[in-house]
């Protein structure tokens, strides 16, 4: 089953700390390489914590790790990074602010 919902991208402490090691370091990749999904949505789409999932938006696609998180149903979390920004919509609706927290995505287990 395909999960559909809003992608919420935000800073995390681990992302902010490891980005200074190097943007190409394994530590940074580990800090950004996941999407947070709530337990109910995971059960509904038969996704387990740690599974690889394909996340698709109108802007792009990434394959990353699913992580069980305390987020709302139909709302998914990713740390700010070049991975999340493959998905984030560049449409600003005249405000200058792109869709960091408003982009619709679809998640499928791979």
């Amino acid at each position: 089953m395909v999960l559909t919902g809003i992608l919420n991208t935000a800073r995390t402490l681990k992302q902010g700390t490891t980005m200074h090691i190097s943007k190409t370091s394994p530590e940074y990749l580990d800090a950004i390489n996941y999407i947070g999904i709530c337990a109910q949505d995971m059960a509904r789409a038969d996704i387990s914590d740690g599974d690889r999932v394909a996340v698709v938006s109108a802007s792009g696609e990434v394959t990353i790790r699913a992580k069980k998180m305390d987020v709302q149903e139909g709302a998914f979390f990713m740390p700010v990074s070049y991975l999340a920004n493959r998905l984030v919509s560049a449409q600003t609706h005249g405000t200058g602010v792109p869709g960091f927290k408003t982009t619709m995505v679809e998640i499928t287990k791979v």
Binding site: G16, T17, S22
Partner: peptide
């Protein structure tokens, strides 16, 4: 804090 450690402890690299 951890963020500031990230800045300073890696400042001599890359």
């Amino acid at each position: 804090c951890n963020l500031s450690k990230g800045v300073f402890m890696n400042a001599h690299t890359e």
